[in-house]
Design a protein around this nucleic acid. Structure first.
Lengths: 132, 132
DNA sequence: ACGAGCCGCTTCCCGATGGAGAGCAGGCAC
DNA sequence: GTGCCTGCTCTCCATCGGGAAGCGGCTCGT
């Protein structure tokens, strides 16, 4: 945090979000984005817009229900845009917004961490499971 | 799987971890760490070890069941250590491992993102909800 | 000696959540 | 018409998480 006057600091304190508090809106936002489908959808859209069916194929194992639900909440939160093109059959395209890309950068780190530290976690698990 | 044949090793080397595939272990790891309680537990332990009751107090709204369950899985995955001290009453302390700190760095970014982009998300939501 | 209390779980019950699969609108092609 | 394609939406049902109560081991007050 940069320097600020006492008045600015008072205002900032009042408006500060703390995700540890259950009622804080930022905690509710954290609850929504700490979601495997959110992580995977944003990662999938990293390289440009995709259609619904392409997303479903890229993210193996996602149910249609959860994919639709996840996309809707991400759209509502301004993280991606939903575009309907009147082709035949109708084409629906999803694309990250500026805000979405900023979150995507963080979540890509998460997906990358999972992929690169897998071996360490697996060996930790087998050590743990070897205990009585 | 601790030991593997040369053929298995070759296959494993070729098969790089890809969290988009449902069966990939890294996808299962991503499923576990994309969890609000995991994020909050690791964030809470950022400044040093805490006891069970301190964690419960810091992370408002977590149930004992989920706190215990989350801590167990994090311990199993080698992200934190659980230390029982034979005081009276017994004291149980949780502390991040090296591996845990590396994930914590990523997840702190997530918690920080939620807290700092809250305003933009809230305004996106009200725009969205204003639609017919 | 007996009861009460503290800490860190563990168990049980029940409402909420997510997956599987079917249905559906609406455009065109046959 | 009948069929087929996409992008949902609905209907079940198994699983998961929250709330509350119990438990075990120890210590302190009376």
């Amino acid at each position: 945090m940069p320097t600020m006057t006492a008045a600015q600091r008072r205002a900032a304190d009042k408006a500060e979000y703390d995700a540890f508090l259950a009622q804080c809106p930022s905690r509710q936002l954290l609850d929504r984005i700490s979601d495997k489908w959110v992580t995977l959808v944003l990662a999938a859209l990293e390289d440009g817009p995709l259609r619904y069916s392409q997303l479903a194929r890229t993210i193996a194992g996602v149910s249609q229900k959860m994919l639709t639900q996840t996309l809707r909440s991400l759209e509502r939160d301004g993280l991606l845009t939903r575009t309907v093109t009147a082709t035949v059959p109708v084409t629906v395209t999803y694309e990250l917004t500026e805000l979405g890309r900023s979150l995507q950068a963080v979540l890509t780190g998460l997906k990358g961490w999972a992929e690169s530290h897998m071996d360490q976690v697996l060996s930790a698990r087998s050590s743990y499971d070897a205990q009585p």
